[in-house]
């Protein structure tokens, strides 16, 4: 069902990547995604692409899942590639009426297509091998140094875990309300922009009012169980860095260094 494709990217397997420390995975993937914007050569991108394919194979994910993760960027990919292909000035290789394909255009189009694909591949590796709980815990640990500047890391982590918990619930509720209102004759996705915007009020209002009620109930329930905001809590699962984590840190640094050093083709 569609609910699965929401947060359904994670699939449990006994792969090495699933066993990695979530903190390490988050930091590594984030740094390599930022790093992508500093790689200036296609050969560097080819190296990174091979590396991301290696990671995907290591994660034992299905090929169909990988392609599905590309689906949302497909339009952007096509748009940018065509834009670069036809509107980059330079040496004309091929012309068709007013459209001119230049060699610089081909170069830039390949470059940008690879950048976009790499962005989505690396994010996929993270989300496919890390469960929501691990992601939240890992993220809380990663931002915890910000406590020094009085940034409320616990509050943010609590917000994230509550939000993750409520996404499937709210999604189901939204579907239900949408069906109920459609059966009463509300037309979604029809008419002009203003009509469409207005037609969502019968969907939005019940959702919001339920959200307020839920917040009340949850706050009372948590306070009744002695929850105090910002107080240190113990965890069921302790995260610890093992040898395999150190190995992957080393591997990522190696790949990043190699991809920036390879010569321009």
């Amino acid at each position: 069902m569609r609910k699965r494709s929401f947060f359904g990217q994670y699939n449990f397997s006994d792969s090495l990547l699933c066993k990695l420390d979530p903190r390490v995975k988050i930091v590594l993937v984030f740094s390599i995604v930022v790093f992508l914007f500093f790689v200036k050569t296609i050969s560097g991108y080819i190296l990174l692409l091979l590396f991301s394919i290696f990671l995907i194979l290591l994660a034992k994910s299905k090929i169909s899942d990988v392609f599905r993760s590309l689906a949302p960027i497909l339009f952007l990919l096509l748009f940018t590639v065509l834009f670069q292909l036809f509107f980059t000035p330079g040496k004309v290789v091929y012309s068709f009426f007013f459209l001119k394909v230049t060699s610089e255009g081909i170069y830039l189009a390949t470059y940008i297509a690879m950048r976009l694909m790499l962005l989505s591949f690396f994010t996929f590796v993270l989300t496919a091998t890390t469960s929501n709980i691990e992601l939240t815990d890992g993220f809380e640990a990663v931002i915890s140094p910000l406590k020094i500047v009085r940034f409320p890391t616990e509050d943010v982590a609590l917000m994230i875990s509550i939000a993750m918990r409520f996404v499937p619930v709210l999604f189901e509720e939204a579907t239900r309300i949408m069906k109920a209102q459609t059966s009463r004759g509300v037309l979604f996705n029809k008419g002009s922009l203003m009509q469409r915007a207005r037609s969502f009020l019968p969907l939005l209002l019940p959702l919001l009012l339920n959200a307020f009620n839920r917040a009340d109930q949850l706050a009372i329930a948590m306070e009744a169980r002695g929850f105090v905001v910002g107080k240190a809590r113990t965890k069921y699962r302790e995260m610890q860095i093992k040898k395999i984590d150190l190995f992957f840190i080393f591997l990522f640094i190696l790949i990043m260094a190699a991809s920036i050093m390879v010569k321009r083709i």
Binding site: M159, I162, F166, L170, A211
Partner: peptide, 10 residues
């Protein structure tokens, strides 16, 4: 905080 979390999910 809870309300903010639910609103973010919404």
């Amino acid at each position: 905080i809870i309300l903010a979390g639910i609103l973010a999910a919404l």
